[in-house]
Design a protein around this nucleic acid. Sequence first.
RNA 1: UGGGGCGUCGCCAAGUGGUAAGGCACCGGGUUUUGAUCCCGGCAUUCGUAGGUUCGAGUCCUGCCGCCCCAGCCA
Length: 562
Amino acid sequence: MNETPETGIDFVRHQITLDNSSGRFGGTVATRFPPEPNGYLHIGHAKSIVLNFGIAQDFSGTCNLRFDDTNPTREDVEYVDSIQQDIRWLGFGWHDRLFYASDYFEQLYQWALHLIEHDLAYVDELTADQIREYRGTPTEPGRNSPWRDRPRQENLELFARMRAGEFPDGHCILRAKIDMAHPNINMRDPALYRIRHARHHRTGDDWCIYPTYDFAHGQSDAIEGITHSICTLEFENHRPLYDWLLSHLPVPHVPRQIEFARLNLTWTVMSKRKLLRLVQEKYVEGWDDPRMPTISGMRRRGYTAEGIRDFCRRIGVSKTNSTVDLALLEFSQREDLNARSPRFMGVVDPVKLTITNWPAGQVEWFDASTSAEDPTVDIRRIPCTGNLWVEREDFMEDAPRKWFRLAPGKEVRLKFAWYVTCTGVVRDAHGEIQEILCTYDPESRGGETPDQRKVKGTIHWVSADHGLPAHIRLFEPLFTREDPDEADDFTTVINEHSCTVMNGYLEPALQELKAGETVQFLRMGYFCRDSRLDTPEHPVFNRAVTLKDSWARVIRNQRENE
RNA sequence: UGGGGCGUCGCCAAGUGGUAAGGCACCGGGUUUUGAUCCCGGCAUUCGUAGGUUCGAGUCCUGCCGCCCCAGCCA
């Protein structure tokens, strides 16, 4: 696949180029992807991963994977494992550059001491509520804590006792001493350390005080020699603090923070809090539900890593808050899936088709290619009989103009096989069509006739005597509106019909397909054999994405014009 | 109304004073044993808005308007 970006160089790469020519970092480029292990990665993270690892590749630099694990009450190893798996699956690696902010706890502690020794930090015994009151508001300055000017020695002792576990959670915190009247609220003596008597997934019970994001992130970047610390827009307000800490600490290196806009997608939610709620309240099967925008969900659905990377390149990187159309993600998937998926036949919503002039008991086998490009390669055999399953939507009793599928009196081609002409239908007691009756033209074997007559419509089919019953899962967006975040409560706009399970039939060759593999069912879309619900006795397929359907569009436009 | 950002086609997005790239979507047309793919063609006299500077402004200046972020001991 073409890996060339659709747009010019983005502003982040532009800044890096500028830094390289000014020699700010001696020409080296080091980035990092810093997830907090408190949830599964989603397509928004993919944007960041492609950016950070992509920049490292483009500039012959490095990209570290660093877990931002400074809050043991929210984090879990389940997530550190899934995150690594997802990044690898996306096609990126970090070699031996796997780090944890918790690796730096001792160094961070020493730096906190340094701040105290220079009268730049103090232990505050105000309660959380009091601190909030003292902080002021965006339009009013805050007030100094009564503990702000306690002696250096006392701060040192108190901080040591915090570490020693002498105080309960919330008893006190370490704060930077900056400016309680600062117009940027993040500079009003921000918290640096808090007490958390909680077991950490890596450091166990070694610590009962943990650094905040602000105190850990920039210093971790400094320790790792990160040149460009790329984060999302909401951290822009933190940059003055990021820079302040770095300039007041004896760090070995000073990185540059650059912020870009996080990804929003239509028809979905992206916040970890909301995704967690979908999982916990069982609106979905789990983090890897094919309807989830998680990496694991998309993988299970049948999306490809290449397609996701391509999507991330197409959306670009900027500082504009934006919501990308889901159609673009689907386009990227179709483009990649089209190039790599073998073609098979599967009937999703089956209706019987009986060939009335078919020799009783006869079975014909056709050699057919699974390639859309070259009919001479990748041949498998398909059985055909007089009893077939065809797609219910491929028949219409009163066909509109330009309909060239099945209808009374109309002739169509059964892909790879014969021409059949519809002679009638059989209905059940409720008037539902139970069976379509056809005759076939024995001269049309393989889909062409000696008289070269044109048949515009070609439909897919499966021999009812050989077809493999399967559950075929069709998905719609999880929400009923394209901007679920705008609803008062996003759970009130959940789409009840986001997953429809069809009882379909597949051509026998599909029996061999392995779980996790994606194929095209001719005319129906790309389907991935499910890795969780599938059994050898009863296959389960997920539709990753439909094919473009210009007939549906014709119908839609016709309706709108009426 | 304090501070920090952002406003270029329906959705993204290039553009760094010289006369509006590209992708998606959409609309035509051609090829086709997938109404798929593929291929051709169309799609911003205008850059939130009002002024100003300039031979020349999406790009510079000023004023408005709109949207996003910040008052966690979350990240």
